[in-house]
């Protein structure tokens, strides 16, 4: 692995070939500032059905040991799919306007 992210690499520093020679480097690219709406998760109400987790396009629902633990605002783009898919009997996610 030879990638550098702190500054643009020059051509002699690139991995030999036409490739990104490590996985999941997009985690260094935060898309949280795209949000205009922010999902607020209520841990009390959550029934841990994981519907929000499996339908999140941005892998932004954090889960540990099969239980939801929160929302990763580094990557959440605020689409609100999670709030819509959350079962009505739980309604554990609210969308609020993002403070700028």
């Amino acid at each position: 692995m030879s990638m550098k992210f702190d500054r643009p690499m020059n051509w002699k520093e690139l991995p030999a070939g036409c490739l990104i020679d490590e996985a999941a480097t997009s985690l260094r690219f935060k898309t949280g500032d795209w949000r205009s709406m922010r999902p607020i998760w209520d841990a009390e109400k959550c029934i841990h059905c994981l519907f929000c987790w499996i339908t999140c396009p941005d892998t932004a629902i954090t889960v540990q040991d099969g239980k939801m633990t929160g929302i990763d605002y580094d990557y959440c783009k605020g689409c609100g799919i999670c709030a819509v898919i959350c079962p009505p009997k739980a309604s554990a996610i609210d969308m609020v306007r993002e403070e700028k």
């Binding site: 999941a24 997009s26 994981l50 987790w53 396009p57 040991d65 990763d72």
Partner: peptide, 30 residues
């Protein structure tokens, strides 16, 4: 089950530039 799946390593992680609410990125994740 979803619970079992949630313990697996994600194949597609966050930080990609798909539009907010993109179904295709969800499908690929699943």
């Amino acid at each position: 089950s979803l619970k079992e799946l949630s313990k697996r390593t994600e194949g597609l992680v966050g930080g990609h530039r798909a539009c907010a609410g993109c179904a295709a990125s969800t499908a690929i994740r699943q």
